[in-house]
Simulated scan of single mutants.
Amino acid sequence: MDATELIRDTYDKVAPTYDRDENDSVLVRRLHWFLYERLTWNAVAAVLPEGRNLRILDAGGGSGTFAALFAERGHHVTVLDLSPGMLEQARARFGERGLLARGAFEVGSILSLPFADGAFDLVFCEGDPVSYCTSQYREAIAELCRVAAPGAYVVLGVDNRAAFFVGALRSANKAEAMSILLTGRGTCPYGLPTHAFTIRELEEAVDAAGADVVEIFGKPVLLGEMLEAFEAAHGPGVDLWEAREELLALQERLVHEGYASMGGHLQVMARRR
């Protein structure tokens, strides 16, 4: 089984239960995904034009979490994913919200996008799709930039090498930590191989693909440490979930103030030349 088939089959299996429950009993995990998704969306929403409906590609769009947000704003979204099972979830999400007229759903790979040059007004690729391309991530980024119209935003979410390195150190796996530091190779929570990026790698790959980096930020940044500091400042009885909007505001400050390398993931905001 090649890497593409492994990724497809893994996500087909988890598709029915993939969407995260906002009532997750593990508070830190629930806060992490709340902050991750809001930080991602807020940065993109800030660059969406008023009064103009865009052609948007959500590449590796999975169950359509972000695609539905674009569609709710009136944009037409093509959701592309390797996994037919995940696309079924995305289609169901659009159907439940009355958005099917604003969506298209295609099985495909970001390494070979079945679209013309400049076909989209915004290209969005969040999570691990680019990281799953390991040794071919440059080709994936080039493809994503190719299908963006001149001047269009290309938004990429990828694994952060610094976070993978520190995570391995904290788990006392020093040999794995050194390998990650030198090669960037790690694994996602499903055990699939990924490439974790340095900021310079991203800048070079985006530039070579014909786009200019506007910003690279981390998400979330120093979450565990921030929660400890927040509790110390407010007392042990503070309800962190009730304070999530305040925590989001703190994260919004941190992620855009030079702490990108401390984020769990990196988000690239770039524009096609």
Score class of each variant (00 low, 15 high):
residue 5 E to M: 10
residue 5 E to V: 05
residue 7 I to N: 07
residue 8 R to L: 07
residue 10 T to W: 11
residue 18 Y to T: 03
residue 24 D to I: 10
residue 25 S to R: 13
residue 25 S to A: 14
residue 28 V to R: 09
residue 28 V to N: 05
residue 28 V to K: 05
residue 29 R to W: 04
residue 32 H to D: 15
residue 32 H to S: 13
residue 34 F to D: 12
residue 36 Y to R: 15
residue 39 L to C: 13
residue 41 W to I: 07
residue 41 W to S: 05
residue 43 A to I: 04
residue 46 A to H: 12
residue 46 A to I: 08
residue 46 A to W: 09
residue 47 V to Q: 09
residue 48 L to D: 14
residue 50 E to W: 03
residue 50 E to H: 05
residue 53 N to G: 02
residue 53 N to Y: 00
residue 55 R to E: 14
residue 55 R to K: 14
residue 56 I to G: 09
residue 60 G to L: 06
residue 62 G to P: 01
residue 66 F to R: 07
residue 67 A to V: 04
residue 70 F to K: 13
residue 71 A to E: 12
residue 75 H to L: 07
residue 76 H to K: 14
residue 79 V to R: 07
residue 80 L to Q: 13
residue 82 L to M: 06
residue 84 P to V: 14
residue 86 M to P: 02
residue 87 L to M: 09
residue 87 L to K: 14
residue 89 Q to S: 07
residue 90 A to K: 04
residue 93 R to L: 11
residue 95 G to D: 14
residue 95 G to S: 14
residue 100 L to S: 15
residue 102 R to P: 01
residue 109 S to Y: 07
residue 111 L to T: 04
residue 112 S to Q: 15
residue 115 F to M: 03
residue 115 F to L: 05
residue 116 A to C: 09
residue 119 A to S: 15
residue 120 F to P: 08
residue 121 D to E: 15
residue 125 C to W: 12
residue 126 E to P: 01
residue 129 P to R: 04
residue 129 P to E: 11
residue 130 V to C: 00
residue 130 V to N: 00
residue 133 C to Q: 14
residue 135 S to Y: 09
residue 137 Y to N: 08
residue 138 R to G: 08
residue 138 R to Y: 02
residue 138 R to N: 05
residue 139 E to G: 15
residue 141 I to L: 09
residue 145 C to Y: 04
residue 154 V to Y: 00
residue 157 G to H: 08
residue 160 N to L: 03
residue 160 N to A: 03
residue 160 N to E: 05
residue 161 R to S: 13
residue 163 A to M: 01
residue 164 F to E: 07
residue 165 F to M: 00
residue 165 F to K: 01
residue 169 L to E: 12
residue 169 L to I: 10
residue 169 L to H: 12
residue 170 R to D: 07
residue 173 N to E: 12
residue 174 K to D: 11
residue 177 A to Y: 03
residue 180 I to C: 05
residue 183 T to A: 05
residue 184 G to N: 11
residue 185 R to H: 06
residue 186 G to I: 01
residue 186 G to W: 00
residue 187 T to A: 13
residue 189 P to T: 08
residue 190 Y to F: 15
residue 191 G to H: 11
residue 191 G to V: 10
residue 193 P to S: 01
residue 194 T to V: 15
residue 196 A to D: 15
residue 198 T to Y: 05
residue 200 R to E: 11
residue 202 L to M: 10
residue 202 L to Q: 13
residue 202 L to E: 13
residue 203 E to N: 08
residue 203 E to H: 06
residue 203 E to G: 12
residue 203 E to W: 02
residue 210 G to Y: 00
residue 210 G to K: 01
residue 211 A to V: 00
residue 215 E to G: 02
residue 215 E to S: 09
residue 217 F to C: 07
residue 218 G to T: 06
residue 221 V to K: 12
residue 226 M to Y: 01
residue 226 M to W: 01
residue 226 M to V: 05
residue 227 L to H: 14
residue 227 L to R: 15
residue 228 E to R: 15
residue 231 E to D: 00
residue 231 E to C: 02
residue 233 A to K: 11
residue 236 P to Y: 06
residue 238 V to W: 04
residue 242 E to M: 06
residue 243 A to R: 13
residue 246 E to Q: 15
residue 251 Q to Y: 03
residue 252 E to N: 01
residue 253 R to N: 10
residue 259 Y to D: 07
residue 260 A to C: 07
residue 262 M to F: 10
residue 262 M to I: 00
residue 264 G to S: 12
residue 265 H to A: 03
residue 266 L to G: 03
residue 267 Q to H: 12
residue 270 A to N: 01
residue 271 R to M: 06
residue 271 R to I: 04
